[in-house]
Design a protein around this nucleic acid. Sequence first.
DNA 1: CATGAATGAGTTTTCATTCAT
DNA 2: AATGAATGAAAACTCATTCAT
Lengths: 195, 195, 195, 195
Amino acid sequence: MNGTRQQRRRGDTRQRIQDVALALFAEQGYEKTSLREIAESLDVTKAALYYHFKTKEEILVSIFQDLSRPLEDLIAWGRDQPHSLETKQEIIRGYSAALAGAAPLFRFMQENQATVRDLRIGNMFKSRMFDLRDILIDPEADMVDQVRCLTALFTLHAGMFVLRDLEGDPEEQRAAVLEVATDLVTQAHRGTAGA
Amino acid sequence: MNGTRQQRRRGDTRQRIQDVALALFAEQGYEKTSLREIAESLDVTKAALYYHFKTKEEILVSIFQDLSRPLEDLIAWGRDQPHSLETKQEIIRGYSAALAGAAPLFRFMQENQATVRDLRIGNMFKSRMFDLRDILIDPEADMVDQVRCLTALFTLHAGMFVLRDLEGDPEEQRAAVLEVATDLVTQAHRGTAGA
Amino acid sequence: MNGTRQQRRRGDTRQRIQDVALALFAEQGYEKTSLREIAESLDVTKAALYYHFKTKEEILVSIFQDLSRPLEDLIAWGRDQPHSLETKQEIIRGYSAALAGAAPLFRFMQENQATVRDLRIGNMFKSRMFDLRDILIDPEADMVDQVRCLTALFTLHAGMFVLRDLEGDPEEQRAAVLEVATDLVTQAHRGTAGA
Amino acid sequence: MNGTRQQRRRGDTRQRIQDVALALFAEQGYEKTSLREIAESLDVTKAALYYHFKTKEEILVSIFQDLSRPLEDLIAWGRDQPHSLETKQEIIRGYSAALAGAAPLFRFMQENQATVRDLRIGNMFKSRMFDLRDILIDPEADMVDQVRCLTALFTLHAGMFVLRDLEGDPEEQRAAVLEVATDLVTQAHRGTAGA
DNA sequence: CATGAATGAGTTTTCATTCAT
DNA sequence: AATGAATGAAAACTCATTCAT
């Protein structure tokens, strides 16, 4: 007992499934990752996956729920703040941190939109984005400033997956992306506030 | 003769396959669209598809090649221009038009990145984007301004698929998106030129 | 007219189909050679093949009929000869020549027995072999001598396709094979005649 | 429980697949035997076959590996013996026994050479034959005696599938074939030893 | 003498899922 | 907490063949 083979501290399996699944989903996409592949990576049988999760989709949902917690907290916080410039800037910073903290998940969401769209997490994610939008955007702002805010959001997203292909220091890149995004919401806020 | 059922103006089939395939690919994603589905939509057999295209991927490639022609022309034009602000703004305008002119295709590219990545069009598209980047970005500009240019590009992309979910006049939206993107390259250019 | 493209002296096509088909059948096997492949090798369409031959099998049958003519002549000759040793030796020589004269065909027959068995040429070939056997074998000879005669036949066959993998001068090999085969019928004849 | 339908002694399926597959492969050929046919013969689904074997080819490979074991043992034995006449005769006897012990498999190999050639078992079998050749053939023997040895081998092969079409007592036939083959290696050995 | 367009029936293979043990 | 065995549905693709032109 406590043998070499059984190293795996028990109770661990669920977490290990999530980890491997996310890695594969992010690397290959959801549809191209089969449960067989996940099981083999873990050296368990497919049936074992079904002991821990009801369906393939459930695995993904559970990952999303676990990893998007910080984002949810951010939104909850933002909702109670005044629509001030500081709040908006803090939201941008927070979102950037949330993305960085669960990069594989968000990269997955980016790259598998068509698939994600008709999975349960599709709506979950969409509603988070709407929440962010409602915090950032002033409904009375003109269209251009509204677009600036949305653009700020997508700048952060794109920063994750596009800049990977670019030369240059990653830390410097992240900072630059954050600056551009912050700039955009600031311009948007000024435009509206000044009018 | 010339019956109702046989309406099918001959020679038409290849084009009809491309049309239906693109519509389905954009709507459901590449993997979730089966050749059976495409064939049934057209009221032909699967084998007929294989008469016109060697593989499923080939259908997609042919669509991409046909529809990305304007983008290619734009790049060819841009390569020979001076790296002036006017050129950059014209590139943004042109890219916006190219996207609008083949919206379903580019929406598809956006939403199926994980899939597209290991299809032939993955590299084709990537290299187009690199070309655009090289035209827009001044290699001596600082990181922030470089990010601004890339952001301009993605603003246009995101404009296509995100704004669909937004209320408001589509034409006004498109104009706003274009303005934000133009603004970004302008700022980037000023920053660099002024330094 | 008499243009560069149409070089192909007309009327030739049927023959060209047979040639290419035999080459491919021998190289890859009957089932693994598709009509598409044959057509493409000839730079014509599949439908063109159907102008010249009713079915895939028909192509093969026509090849067999054309190329097995010498064998048929040999058998016809042998049937009218006395069952002397000279006759038997001549049959062996003749069969060797027939095989050499249509090597790809007979190699094909060797290597595709399972397939050939339920094609029309299966029975055609089988009956030729029975004819040869009846000429070579004395029904009153003992089993061992009968086997010697059959072995002589198969020695020639095997000589074609096995020796290809062997080092050594091909001509010397062919001569050696012929000598062994001749030896076998001679022994068989002596055994029977001497008894 | 223990119902008539569920007879299937569990754990049995893999073996049953191999048995049925070999029977069908030998009877109809590899290409003309579909997995559907095998599955239906066993009253399981196609997918069940894939639970036990990764590909169609794997089924064949596994059969070959299981059934060619005695041949491998024979070769292993032969390699360590002196190149004496007794050794050679024993090899012939042993090969005859090996063929008889797995007649359907070797018949299959005979009749599907074109197919087998580009499957993994093609090379496996070829190398076994080369091993046998190296044991039987004296490299200093003249070509004719070398051919005699090879012919001995093919006599045994041909004995299996040709004699099926012949009248006469099968046991007597087998004995006769063995005698002819033994005779051939003996002649070959004498020729070389005497020189 | 040949092509362009298409079909129907089939192939091997893969997948998410189930369930008795 | 997991496995071994299996399934039903579907996928992409191939092939010999047909026929109007």
